[in-house]
Amino acid sequence: MAASSSNDRLDDAYDDAVDDALDDALDDAFDEKFEAMFNSFVKQNEEKMKKKKRAYIEREREKGHLRLWNDYFSDDATYPPHIFRRRFRMTKDLFMRIVTRLADEVPYFQQRRNATGRLGLSPLQKCTAAIRMMAYGTAADAVDEYLRLGATTALLCLEHFTEGIISLFGDEYLRRPTADDLQRLLNIGEQRGFPGMIGSIDCMHWEWKNCPTAWRGQYTRGSGKPTIVLKAVASQDLWICTRFLDLQVH
């Protein structure tokens, strides 16, 4: 009887030792696995943070302004007025009038110094970026190499430029024509052999990216993509120009 009791105690001690060893092994395995997963998670987050961090590029914006000035605005500019007219879609006098008004009355186009005393982008650089993007329909970063400004800044230039033009020149150039204006246009049309014509009309198809699915068939032509028609009526000198969208079924 005593021997049997002693054997039971040994079995219990053995079982306890096995259970303790198993628990320790499981704890060690869990800790190891958890630490590996935690380190992997931290590493992934660090990599994402590094990817999101914007790298600063020293574009030397002063050189961009100097080259632009020497090419088009200095007394002995590289390119003559007719090339300026073709590339900027307006005369130099008109462009400078716009730049001067924007620089005087729109804070965004006023050249300032930063905390280190370095001048920011000039009004010429900002306005040229906006004009080039509109004139050529280029991407925002297409003007980076010549004007030395990034895509985000170029888009801001375009946004503030259009808002400034509407604010400063809207009452004069974006108003509805008066009776005298229409009569002048009729006289010009008659002189050019088109009596009774106020302006000429043109149109283009513009892809409707967010066209509702239920409407796609009504606005799809041979290209297979839904489009809307942008129409414009303009005088011979673009003094009067109205635009409207045609949403009729093609």
Rank of each mutant, 00 (worst) to 15 (best):
T152F: 08
K209L: 12
W215S: 14
R132T: 04
D180Y: 00
E105A: 08
D76F: 06
C127S: 11
V229H: 00
A3N: 11
F161S: 00
D24L: 11
D27G: 05
D75W: 03
L186N: 04
G64K: 06
Q125I: 08
V106N: 02
A17M: 15
R221H: 13
K48V: 13
I240V: 04
S167F: 04
L238M: 12
D237F: 03
M37W: 06
L10M: 11
T162I: 14
I240H: 10
W69Y: 15
G189N: 06
K209W: 03
S6N: 12
S235R: 03
W239C: 00
V99L: 08
D27L: 06
W206Y: 08
K209H: 09
F244W: 15
R175E: 11
G150L: 04
V229N: 01
E62V: 11
Y14S: 14
V249M: 11
K51I: 15
H82Y: 09
E190C: 09
L155K: 11
A25R: 15
L121Y: 10
S4G: 08
A139E: 11
A25T: 12
P195C: 07
K126S: 09
M1V: 14
K33M: 15
W208P: 03
D19C: 07
T227Y: 05
D8N: 09
R243S: 09
V233Y: 08
L68D: 05
D11C: 11
A21L: 13
M49S: 14
E58R: 11
T128Y: 05
K231D: 10
K33V: 07
D246V: 14
R175D: 09
D181A: 08
G217Y: 06
K33T: 13
M133D: 04
Q191W: 03
Y108C: 05
F34P: 00
R59D: 14
T100F: 05
D20G: 00
L185S: 11
L186I: 09
E172D: 13
I228C: 03
L158R: 05
G170V: 00
K126L: 08
A77L: 08
Y72G: 06
R97W: 00
Q248S: 15
D23L: 12
